[in-house]
């Protein structure tokens, strides 16, 4: 046993296989406009947007301990910025989406300074207050249709692509791109130095603080980045909807409740969780949506049961069973057992 050596690595067999498979799946998905029908593409587009929202919410709640029930503030803000920047700013929608992201991140800065004064669960409700303030404020802006909202002018929609199918493909690719971007940003952030700090905070905030990790700054960065990206997603979402109103833009059910259920069911605090959760959520929705309110009751019950019985969600269950990780984040110590020869 004496000539045993260790090697420390992040990758694993499963992760390499997943990487290859992921690339293949991504290529198939990029090609969807050539193989999928119009309705399927719409559904998949929506799925990707939810996946992106869920990944960002998971970054905040699952890693930075920032449990927000108010991310609809940024979805709605981004949506409204798309309308404002294209209608009044004359920007091309694509630039307007980027602009919405930047503005979303900018407004998140003063918001964070304020609501970071609320701790734990009170922070959550504070985020909701902010979303309400946003909703009520936009309802006051008559140029954007006030309380009843407004539609995106046809000219702006046309500027995206002249044909309907062209627009639909573009919208699909943007949604796919958004999901890939969100997951990549989360992944890279978690691999960075700040990511290590985040993992430390998630595991033990007190200990992380005593190790000299600047918890406030780390959380602040996460909040601002996640909010800016969420605002971009909001712009994308309402570019597809073509109509915006305060109630739709700042809906706590659509943009937060569903997202929370996705993350909780899939597995909070893992990159894979939101992916699994989104798939489960859409599968449930497509099969049970006819039940209307019953479907939402079932969803709520499932989320509560998961939280109580399997707090790490479906992905946590799989990991525990098979010790698997698709996005290599953890370091593993491997024993290179040369003694065996």
């Amino acid at each position: 046993m004496s000539n045993q050596t260790h090697s420390i690595s992040r990758t694993s067999q499963a992760a390499r296989v997943a990487g290859v498979l992921g690339a293949l799946v991504l290529m198939v998905l990029i090609a969807a406009p050539w193989w999928a029908g119009r309705a399927d593409m719409r559904l998949m587009g929506e799925l990707f947007l939810y996946l992106a929202l869920a990944s960002l919410w998971n970054l905040m709640a699952g890693y930075a301990g920032l449990v927000s029930v108010g991310q609809q503030a940024y979805v709605g803000f981004g949506g409204y910025m798309l309308f404002a920047l294209t209608i009044f700013g004359g920007l091309h929608p694509l630039y307007a989406i980027a602009g919405a992201g930047v503005l979303g991140a900018l407004i998140a800065i003063p918001v964070a300074t304020l609501i970071f004064r609320l701790r734990g669960a009170y922070f959550a409700i504070g985020t909701w207050v902010i979303a309400e303030v946003f909703r009520l404020s936009f309802a006051q802006i008559s140029a954007l249709g006030g309380g009843s909202g407004s539609s995106l002018p046809v000219g702006i929609v046309r500027s995206l692509a002249s044909s309907r199918s062209g627009r639909e493909s573009l919208a699909y690719w943007m949604a796919l791109g958004a999901a890939v971007t969100a997951i990549t940003v989360v992944y890279l952030l978690l691999r960075s130095r700040r990511g290590l700090a985040l993992t430390a905070i998630r595991d033990n905030e007190l200990a992380a603080g005593s190790l000299g990790i600047d918890i406030w700054r780390t959380k602040f960065v996460v909040y601002v980045v996640a909010s800016g990206l969420t605002a971009m997603l909001g712009a994308l979402i309402f570019l597809q909807k073509l109509r915006i109103s305060p109630d739709a833009a700042f809906s706590v059910n659509d943009w937060t409740a569903f997202v929370i259920f996705i993350v909780v069911i899939g597995g909070i605090g893992t990159i894979e969780g939101p992916i699994i959760g989104t798939l489960i959520f859409f599968a449930l929705r497509e099969t049970l949506a006819d039940l209307g309110t019953t479907y939402l009751i079932v969803l709520g019950i499932v989320a509560i049961v998961v939280m109580l019985k399997a707090p790490k969600g479906v992905w946590g269950f799989i990991v525990e069973r098979y010790d698997m990780q698709l996005f290599p984040l953890r370091y593993r110590v491997k024993l290179n057992d040369q003694a065996k020869r």
């Binding site: 029930v69 734990g120 409740a257 929370i260 909070i268 939402l296 939280m307």
Partner: peptide
């Protein structure tokens, strides 16, 4: 703090429906 928050959030959705 996550379990109480998320469970009561789920409860909220259930009650509303």
């Amino acid at each position: 703090i996550l379990p109480p928050l998320l469970v009561t959030f789920g409860l909220s959705v259930i009650l509303q429906n």
